[in-house]
Amino acid sequence: MPRNPFANPLFLPVFLRVMLLIVVGLAAVLLAQRRSLKVWRRSTLFLRARTWFVIGPLFVLAVFIGGFVAFLLATFVVVQGCSEFARIAGIERRYAYLLILWGELGLLVAALARDFFGFLPFGFFIALTLLPILSGQITDAHRQVADTLVGYVFVALPMAYIVLVKSAEPYGLEFLVIVTVAVALSDIAAYATGSALRGRKLMPRVDPTKTWGGVLGNLVGAAVGVGWLWVAVPPEWSVAAVVVLVLVIAFGSVWADLTGSFIQRAFRTEVRSTVILGYGGVLNRVDSLLMAFPLSYFALILVDKLVG
């Protein structure tokens, strides 16, 4: 059920911090660019800043309201993200529809029937293999099945994890907000430091633009993100857990960058989406979160077990 966000004492501090972050970021970009407003309004950075002003508060509101409002946001990401992946990978429409449907089913199971969550990947594999079997169309079916599975593990399953953790864990809401903001800052800082410092390429054969300077930005951004939302960090989390969280978020962001890059190159695609102004597709915006979130969650559990 949707909740009144103001009833949660964390809502206003988090909302204000996120908005302040966007305003400070915008001011920093304006100062660094030193262009006239007329020129700046036409730039990608302006579109991105405008986009942040919409998706930042929208995200915070949706997760604090919860219920079907948060579910709608997750649905949008699954539907658009899976569609984009299908286009990038050249997945046939019937496989794409199955990917989207199972992605939606995953959100429902994560929110309402957690006992069956473990069955989701195997169930998807069964449904996926039934497509060529029942239709009798087996030409290229192995590639379609494999690519659709990658899409499921890359987009739909992590989104189901996000819903599961948010709804099942006592600190799910805080964890989601912290990781999302830290991942976003990690990406932005990587872009900024990568452009400013340049330096040696990280893996030029995979991603010719990613530098070690960018990796440093990922780490700094993740640390600043977690620190900025310290108010949301549950008191039960140990210092070791927070440090590991920062490291894993930074690692997840770098990993997502490289994976996104290798997927684009592997499929040799020029497909570009136009869903989010300045960013193109939904996947561009959420791929780091999708990869960093489950990783951070299990890292936190592991640290909790090890440290006690």
Partner: peptide, 10 residues
Amino acid sequence: SFIPLPGGVV
């Protein structure tokens, strides 16, 4: 095609 595959439009 009779079912849309979602995506951005300009």
